[in-house]
Computed example of a mutant assay.
Amino acid sequence: MKKKIEKALKNVIIIDNKNIIESGLVKKIDLLNNEIIIHLNLSNPAMHLKNKLIKDITQSIRSQNISDTIRIKTETEIKSYTKIKPVIKNIIAVASGKGGVGKSTIATNIAVSLGHMGFHVGLLDADIYGPSIPLMFNIENKSARLQHKNGIINPITSYGVKILSIGFFSKYGQAIVWRGPMVTKVLRQFMHETNWGELDFLIVDLPPGTGDIHLSLLQEIPLKGIVIVSTSQKIALSDVNRSVGMFRIQSIYVPILGIIENMSYLSSKKTKEKCFFFGKNGVRDFSKEMNLFFLGEIPMLQKIREYSDLGIPVVLENENIRNIFLNITKNIINQLHE
């Protein structure tokens, strides 16, 4: 019986293309009163990965015509990997007060713009509950390409940018239901156990709002500065006000490099007339009120939406939009040296 079970377990493959027997995940197999108890030692505690593994093991054993009750016990193995020390000159976070203001689109195109300017760039998707960066580069569900060695993750490179996101480890649209400590653990691994190499810039795409992830990152990562994204809508600026307050708290202070007004206006091709859909100059006026540098405005353009949906950074395809982002990116760099 045990040999049949071991044969079934050899058909269960994990990320590095080894089966769970070869990888040492199976600690032991107990057979007791028509019950099969499989003890697993997991290095990755993510719930969705554990559930997938249990499902695959159960299906593989059932395929051997074994009808005994299957019980799988798991424990998380805490390995003391040697943390690598990447050489990252500037870590900049892109934040917003609320969702839906285009923060991930801007983080993506700033990262690619920096690459176009000759810098070595990484992009860390820190929005654990709503990762958008894989869609922005059309590389979702590519965890098989993330090579693990001694617990170290190699990010995926796309359009010259090194990228890492929890979205690479989950199915499209799958809910990530984690408590704060689990999120902190994963972010720490993404930062300290990832082979970022030598980077001039690491852009961190933060989740919207002011929560646990923000506090964990501010404590864990030596940020050089924050770039804030907002529309001119009053409700968006109200939430941005809270974000500014958080970053200016003395105990977690991080300099705010400036604020970007996204979806600033719609422009008629025929009349060249501008329609300020979310309000006129709201972010510009807010920046003066809060003593923030105004980094620039990005109009509401269909091309930006179209290329984002295709998973292609729009700065690669449209010269006018490229120039808008290049100017904003240059302003960010200038603010770093103020």
Rank of each mutant, 00 (worst) to 15 (best):
M1Y: 12
N11W: 01
I15N: 15
I20Q: 05
E22T: 12
E35D: 07
L40D: 01
P45A: 01
L49R: 14
I54R: 13
K55N: 15
D56V: 11
I57P: 07
T58S: 12
Q59D: 15
R62S: 08
T69Q: 06
E77I: 13
K79S: 12
S80C: 10
Y81W: 15
K85F: 15
V87F: 14
I88D: 06
A93Q: 02
G100A: 06
K103R: 06
I106Q: 07
I106P: 09
A111P: 10
A111K: 03
H116Q: 14
M117V: 07
L124T: 02
A126S: 06
I128R: 00
I128S: 00
S143R: 10
R145P: 02
I153Q: 06
T157C: 05
T157A: 04
V161D: 00
V183W: 08
F190A: 02
E193F: 14
N195C: 13
G197R: 03
V204M: 01
T210G: 01
I213V: 15
L218P: 03
I226N: 00
I228H: 00
Q233W: 11
A236E: 00
D239M: 01
D239Y: 05
V240E: 00
V240G: 00
E261Y: 07
N262C: 12
M263T: 14
S267K: 15
S267H: 13
S267N: 13
K274G: 11
K280I: 09
L292V: 11
G296E: 02
I312G: 09
L316A: 10
E319M: 11
I321C: 07
F325A: 04
T329A: 02
K330I: 10
N331W: 09
